[in-house]
């Protein structure tokens, strides 16, 4: 079985979001870039599956659509144990363009299981996985919180409102994963970093797909009004607020 994990590069989740003064662009000054947290969990699960299924998974490839400066996140993926990496040399414009670039690569390099994070923590598009599956004309399962392999078959858990479904879906498949898929992302070891030195990042020329959408203006929310403090021994005041203003009781 071959697994492809799609990874995107996002600002660290503690980043204070800023935009250029004309509001047209994200201000990346001083931003620390990381692998999108859900993508990293997807990769972690792929590695766990490879380690626990005794040779069933022959290869884990990570793919990223991005310029050369995203290579550090790709290198990290290789350091924690991905076998192979592909970078499609394009600026990721919108989800459709990204999905189209990846789909093009997958058409000539088939995979059994393709993993994507449920969203990227920057543009929150929730889109690449579903689009990719549609472009490849294969099934997709979203909100996946667990993937197991039993006798060579995938057992997928999908989160639904108020519960979960255990599903059996044939490959090839795009699994769009969310929290729960793996516990903690891995920290690369010195051995892993050393091993990654000999792994090549395959750089692929883009097909340059026009984006279907454009971000034209970014805005930060209005700052919230001052928090009204209520003394802990005057909870009656809070009861009044809950009743009169919030109408919760």
């Amino acid at each position: 079985m071959k697994i492809l994990v799609c990874i995107s590069n996002v600002p660290d989740t503690t980043t204070k979001i800023k935009f250029t003064s004309d509001g047209k662009q994200f201000d990346a000054t001083g931003v620390q870039w990381i692998i999108n947290p859900w993508d990293e969990l997807a990769l972690t699960r792929a590695l766990e599956l490879k380690e626990t299924t005794g040779g069933l998974i022959e290869n884990i490839t990570v793919i990223n659509v991005g310029t050369k400066d995203t290579e550090i996140t790709i290198r990290k993926a290789l350091s924690v144990g991905a076998d192979h990496a592909v970078r499609i040399d394009a600026i990721p414009t919108d989800a459709y363009a990204v999905a189209s670039e990846i789909a093009k690569y997958v058409e000539t390099h088939p995979f059994d299981l393709i993993l994507t994070g449920i969203e990227s923590s920057d543009y929150n598009g929730n889109a690449v996985g579903g689009m990719l599956a549609e472009l490849l004309n294969i099934p997709s399962v979203s909100s996946v919180s667990s993937i197991e392999i039993n006798e060579g078959k995938l057992i997928i858990t999908r989160e639904i409102d108020g519960g979960k479904q255990i599903l059996d879906v044939p490959t090839p498949l795009v699994a769009i994963v969310q929290k729960g898929i793996a516990k903690e992302p891995r920290i690369p070891s010195m051995r892993g970093i050393m091993a990654a030195r000999t792994k090549v990042i395959e750089v692929v020329n883009p097909i340059n797909v026009a984006p279907l959408t454009d971000y034209i203006l970014f805005e930060l929310p209005q700052p919230k009004g001052k928090c009204k403090m209520i003394p802990a021994d005057q909870l009656d005041e809070l009861i009044h607020v809950l009743h009169q203003e919030i109408k919760a009781i």
Binding site: I72, R75, I187
Partner: peptide
């Protein structure tokens, strides 16, 4: 790149 990765690994730990 490698030094940054190592720095990040220690930071994460």
């Amino acid at each position: 790149e490698e030094q940054k990765l190592i720095q990040q690994a220690a930071r994460d730990l």
